[in-house]
Amino acid sequence: MVNTAECASFWSDVRREVPDLPTAVPEAWAFGATPAHADELLALVLAGTKTATASSLGDYEEDGDPLPAAGDLSIILDGAGRPRAVLEVTSIQIVPFDQVGADHARAEGEGDRTLRSWRRIHEQFWGEHSARGFAPDMPVVCETFRVVFPAAHRNG
């Protein structure tokens, strides 16, 4: 669960260091489906290894959530729900799962960073955690991002 007061305080701290950011607190979320997975993927982001992510378009549709767009900001939470970084979406591309490319797979930073590994990891993830399950031709929202503010130095 997102602690809105903690996110607002975090955003205030970030804006002191990056004053050009908007005043409105952006959406806060964590990578993955478990606290351990959130921490693992956040570590890849903070290390600069993970600069992309992928989501099931069907999950956005099921939840009624808007799709991300270039320029969107997000507060990224760790597995305990604490704000740790701010990301900015740099690009969005929606492609069938079986057409996601090797460059995107590498940018996601998971496994051995190959397309084969990316497909195995995401097929399993969406098979277990997606509202609509997995299909080889399912639409995938491929998102690239940049870290606007890392918060690895903050104490939780």
Rank of each mutant, 00 (worst) to 15 (best):
W11H: 03
S12Y: 00
S12A: 12
D13W: 04
R15N: 06
R16F: 12
R16C: 12
V18I: 15
P19N: 01
P19R: 03
D20E: 15
L21Q: 05
P22M: 06
T23L: 13
A24V: 01
A24S: 10
V25N: 04
V25Q: 01
P26C: 13
E27N: 08
A28W: 05
A28D: 04
W29I: 10
A30Y: 00
A30H: 00
F31K: 00
A33I: 04
P35Y: 04
P35V: 09
P35A: 08
H37N: 15
A38R: 02
A38L: 07
E40R: 07
L41N: 10
L42V: 08
A43I: 12
L44Y: 12
V45M: 09
V45K: 03
L46K: 04
T49M: 14
T51K: 00
A52D: 11
A52E: 10
A52P: 12
T53A: 12
T53I: 07
T53P: 14
A54F: 09
A54N: 12
A54W: 13
S55Y: 09
S55H: 14
S55V: 10
S55F: 15
G58A: 13
G58R: 07
D59H: 03
E61L: 13
E62N: 13
E62F: 15
G64D: 11
P66C: 11
L67G: 08
L67A: 12
L67C: 00
P68G: 03
P68Y: 04
D72L: 05
S74N: 14
S74R: 14
I75Q: 03
I75D: 02
I76N: 02
I76S: 01
I76M: 08
I76Q: 06
L77F: 05
L77C: 04
D78E: 03
D78T: 01
D78L: 02
D78R: 00
G79F: 02
G79A: 04
G79I: 04
A80G: 15
A80C: 07
G81L: 09
G81M: 02
R82T: 06
P83I: 02
R84D: 08
A85M: 09
V86P: 07
L87M: 04
L87P: 06
E88N: 09
E88I: 13
V89Y: 06
V89I: 10
V89H: 07
T90Y: 07
T90L: 10
S91W: 00
S91Y: 03
I92N: 06
Q93N: 15
Q93G: 11
I94A: 12
I94C: 14
V95C: 08
P96Q: 07
D98W: 00
D98V: 00
D98S: 02
D98I: 03
Q99P: 08
Q99D: 12
V100L: 09
A102K: 06
D103Q: 15
